[in-house]
C-alpha cells in the first residue's frame, strides 16, 4: 500500500530511551475541499496510529483533518526486551497499513 519510512535504532541498551520516527504517504484529504466540478471530495484521513512493542501498546495517536498530508510522527519508548515493534495506521476507508521492525536489546 503506502510507502513508509521508519527510523529506530536496531540495537539498544536495556533501560535506554529510544526515539522512533515514522513517516507515511497519505493524502489526508480533509473532506472540506471541492473538486473542479464543485463536488465535495470525501474525507479520507488516517484517523488512528498505534505502536505495540512485543504485544504491549506503547504509543497511540488519534489524527484529525487539520494534520498535513504524509503525516510524520515521532515518539519515544524505553528499551525493555529484544523483540518486535508493530506499527499500524488506519484510515477512513478502513484500510490498515502494518509494518514490523525488529530490535535487539542488550
Amino acid at each position: 500500500m503506502a510507502r513508509v519510512l521508519i527510523n529506530l535504532p536496531q540495537r539498544a541498551k536495556r533501560g535506554d530511551i529510544m526515539e522512533i520516527k515514522t513517516l507515511i504517504q497519505h493524502p489526508m484529504e480533509t473532506g472540506y475541499r471541492l473538486d473542479n466540478k464543485g463536488v465535495a471530495i470525501p474525507r479520507d484521513i488516517i484517523n488512528r496510529f498505534t505502536c505495540t512493542y512485543n504485544g504491549d501498546e506503547v504509543f497511540q495517536a488519534e489524527l484529525f483533518p487539520a494534520i498535513s498530508a504524509n503525516p510524520f510522527l515521532a515518539f519515544s519508548t524505553v528499551a525493555t526486551e529484544s523483540g518486535e515493534l508493530v506499527f499500524s495506521w488506519t484510515d477512513d476507508r478502513g484500510q490498515t497499513q502494518t509494518e514490523t521492525r525488529q530490535i535487539t536489546v542488550e
Binding site: 510507502r3 519510512l5 527510523n7 513517516l23 504517504q25 510524520f72
Partner: peptide, 14 residues
C-alpha cells in the same frame, strides 16, 4: 536533512 523526516524520500523509495 533527516532522511526519515523528509517526505520527498517517500517518492525516492517509490
Amino acid at each position: 536533512d533527516d532522511d526519515t523526516a523528509n517526505p520527498g524520500n517517500l517518492w525516492v523509495l517509490q
